[in-house]
Write a protein that binds this DNA or RNA. Structure first.
Lengths: 211, 211
DNA sequence: CAACCGTTCTTAACATCGTTAGGCGTTTTA
DNA sequence: TAAAACGCCTAACGATGTTAAGAACGGTTG
């Protein structure tokens, strides 16, 4: 009678195996470099077997992104408890950068890849992305409301997008940097922190007063 | 006797046709989306013909990058004549962002793509990139030397990389932004300018004095 | 016990990709 | 006029994502 459950359990098991193999390959050789045949071979299945668990290669990627973005989201939600909005902003930036440096290939897949047209629902999941963005926006709004920011900035989303862009720029350049060019790259984490603090100093200067 | 020259001229002609067709396709559908067969069809040749003019697809891309990056380089070299180093830095950033917004696919190809291993010389050309980077570094060095920058910054390359990262972040997010996520993006050019100025305000504040 | 049935995976194939080997026709050279 | 060079094409190879059709396995039912 419990055979139905056992079947479901086994199915979930192989599904997980596929995901893990896919993750390892995506992370090590990238999305384009990963072959369905290679994923299958790693778990000693045929490529066709994968298609009985996932609709196609992009669906595999989407599932992985959905799963692997949650650590970032939870980290950011923890930070949300910090009282001072400026300090909160600082830590949000740091968490974001740390995530990108720890999971560079995930980061690349989620924030640096323009995937081919996906008409249907196997697109890359945008909900966790939106959640992290909302968190950032809310904190920016709090900072503006606290009156500590230069009065020319009144739009929380603009502020959020500026900070996001700056942090993203460090990560994106670090991940994609060409070995060919003879550029002596500075430590990306340190660079991001200094960029963050310099930018914040510029944004916070000129505020009417520290009430 | 002039037949030799005529042959060379004709050869250069078809070579240029290939390049133009490739550029249009790369720009409209991206590198991966472009097919050697599609390039050939557009100029009414067979795919094999391309290989008599270029070693492979990557060599095509490399040639185009080399050619299309020079507008940016010349623009930046013009700006190099501006006397005030801070103003020079401002304009360099603006020129860079404008280039990225005007040629988003070129920008993506050159600064946002990690190409597969290229053992040989058909790699993406790094010399124009290095030249623009040197220009930026030199200006950063001038700004530091002018004593207008916060004393904690003494490394021109670090400064250059921070500014570059910030500008790159705006461009990269703009180019790759997912339509799926419901984020109301601000105008990227305006965002870049405000980001640049805020960052500079933060970098320049706290300088000992304006000698 | 045996026939049936759904689930899970495999075999074989398709279309498309970048790329290459070899040949055909025209033009230049000896 | 024969030969060499050049420019391009036909045909194919191996690899890719993906799909159609069927085989093997286990559980359910007569």
């Amino acid at each position: 009678m419990g055979s139905r459950e056992r079947r479901a359990r086994q199915r979930a098991e192989t599904r997980k195996m596929i995901l893990e193999a896919a993750r390892e390959l995506f992370v090590s050789v990238g999305y384009e470099g990963t072959t369905m045949r290679a994923i299958a071979e790693r778990i000693e299945y045929t490529p066709t077997a994968i298609y009985h668990h996932f609709r196609n290669k992009q669906a595999l990627l989407a599932e992985l992104c959905r799963a692997d973005l949650t650590p970032l989201l939870t980290a950011m939600e923890c930070i949300d408890a910090v009282a001072d909005p400026v300090e909160r902003l600082r830590r949000l930036c740091e968490a974001y950068v740390s995530f990108g440096l720890t999971h560079p290939m995930h980061y690349q897949l989620m924030f640096m890849t323009r995937l081919p047209k996906t008409d249907d629902a196997d697109a890359i999941p945008s909900d966790p992305l939106e959640n992290t963005y909302r968190l950032l926006c809310d904190t920016c709004a709090a900072v503006i409301e606290s009156g500590q920011v230069h009065p020319e900035f009144t739009d929380p989303e603009e502020l959020a997008q500026m900070l996001w862009s700056a942090m993203h720029g460090v990560l994106a350049l670090h991940i994609v940097k060409k070995e060919g060019a003879k550029i002596e790259w500075r430590d990306p984490h340190a660079a991001a922190i200094r960029l963050r603090d310099s930018l914040l100093r510029g944004l916070l200067s000129g505020a009417p007063a520290t009430s």
